[in-house]
Structures are given as structure tokens and as C-alpha cells.
Design a protein around this nucleic acid. Structure first.
Lengths: 130, 130
DNA sequence: CAATCTATGTGCAATCTGCATATAGGTGCA
DNA sequence: TGCACCTATATGCAGATTGCACATAGATTG
């Protein structure tokens, strides 16, 4: 199906958008920050291996999620000036963030089980019914 | 953590809700209807094996999704009167619905891959960083 | 006849997310 | 110098999804 870039007008038969797991940016950003202190623009690139290569994350959403995580105490930030280009807000994960990430991982493992249950049922059903 | 039933006041550290996959009701209902013609109240029960046992789907959402699927041409409905209790709206899947379900399955398989990529990365990272 | 179960539905509000846009420092180049 | 472009962060707005509260109504049971 050709894609002219315009939003889908007729609401009919719309397939789910690329972002299918709610708030999936959260665990991805937290895992990246667990590896290294980083700023938003950098994380935007780092997300690519997590399924955001074909469907890049929106930068405004990334920045918003990071500020949200900071409000929650999962990360802290500090301004880095003096480097080349505009000032960057450098994020670092906290202990609270570590626990939050672990909770997310458990949560996603459960989601994975649910997904498998569905796909297995689908496959066996389709095998029987042609 | 005790749960007094009230909504979470302090917005802090909220973990993702039980419904983590966007519009997951859609493929589940379609798969159930691929097996058998059924009405909403019945489908509400049939959803349980798909991960809705611990977190039952909201009935209003189920009815709304079914009407939405009908607008899309994925299902058709007819009233069944004469049985015991109130009239029931019986849903049946269409050929368009079959294709839509197949598309959903492909979509969820991709989601599954993304999920695995994350969990594998998480596990190996945590193994290294104790 | 009141409570309860079956069955379908509307209204509303919170949440999440993508698009458009604003702001601003820095670099390359004609 | 002027201009385009890249880096970097952020706000406003609107559409989509979803859960909760509530409305409606037929049928059954004590």
C-alpha cells in the first residue's frame, strides 16, 4: 500500500501504530541510562537498536519522558555547558531508577508471556482451520 | 504494597498498567470470533485465557471495540431475541476481518521480536553489571 | 416486589503520543 | 556578512485509547 505521508483520513481498517507497547520508551531509556550517563539527543540515537530504527521515536516525547522520569526520582540531571553546540542536560540513573527498571523488566516478561499465549493459540487455530 | 482501591494520588513511580499492548482487545476478540459466532457478554468470559483472567477487561470497552470493528467491516452483527434474558447482539467475523486478524498477528510477532530484543539486552547487561 | 443476573450501551476524564512549532548556540560556506 | 543546517531542549495541541461511573432493560429467584 502506498504511503503519501498524509494521516489516514478514512478511519477504517487502521492497523495499530508502530508504538504498540505502552510507555515502552521508559524502560528503553532507563536501560540506556543504566549503561551510561547521557543526554536526550544522544539517547534518541541509542534507541535505534530497540526497534526504533524503522520507526524513530519522536524527540519531544523522549524529552518529555525524561523529565517525567526525573519527577519520579528515577533519574537526575545536570547541565553540561562548555562543550560544542548548545548546552546539554545530562541524565544519570538513580537507585530508585534501578528498581523501577527491574519492575519494568518483570512487567515486560509478563507481557511477553501473554503475547506468546495469543500467538500460539492463533497458530494452532489457523493450522486446524486451514 | 497495600491497595485501598482508591486511584493513585501521588503521580510518582507509577508502574505500567495491566493493559500494556495497545488495542490488544482487537486481535483477541477477532480470534475468538474466528472460532465461533458470539455476543459481547460471552466474549468477556472468553477473553480470560488471553491474559484477562487476573485483569478482566472492562465490559464497556469490549462493547465499544466490537462496534468499532463492525464500522470497519471486520465483523457483522444481528440481534438474537427469543432466548432467555435480554436480546443479544451476535457477532460474526467477515473475510475482511480474517485479513485484519492476520495483519494483527504479523504485527504482534514483530512486537514480540522487539520485546525479546529488549529483554535479552537487559539480561546480558545485568549479568555483566551484577 | 426486591434483589440479582444477563446484556448492551453512553458520558466523562486521565493518559499517552505524534505533529507542529519555538528557541537558541554553533558550524560551514558563498 | 548572510544563510542554511546541525545540535539540543522544550511547549502546545489534538487524536486515540481506556477505565470508571452510570443508565437501561429483560429475566429469574426467593
Amino acid at each position: 500500500m502506498p504511503d503519501d505521508g498524509r494521516p489516514c483520513r478514512h478511519r477504517q481498517l487502521r492497523h495499530p501504530q508502530p508504538r504498540r507497547i505502552n510507555r515502552f520508551l521508559e524502560p528503553c531509556l532507563m536501560l540506556l541510562l543504566h549503561c551510561n550517563e547521557a543526554h536526550g539527543y544522544e539517547l534518541l540515537e541509542g534507541l535505534k537498536p530497540y526497534g526504533f530504527a524503522r520507526n524513530p521515536a519522536d524527540s519531544s516525547t523522549v524529552y518529555r519522558v525524561l523529565r517525567h522520569l526525573e519527577e519520579q526520582g528515577c533519574v537526575t540531571s545536570r547541565w553540561e555547558t562548555g562543550g560544542a553546540g548548545p548546552a546539554r542536560r545530562l541524565y544519570r540513573i538513580t537507585e530508585e531508577g534501578d528498581r523501577f527498571l527491574a519492575g519494568w523488566a518483570d512487567n515486560l516478561r509478563e507481557t511477553d508471556r501473554v503475547l506468546h499465549r495469543f500467538l500460539r493459540t492463533y497458530d494452532t487455530h489457523m493450522e486446524i482451520h486451514r
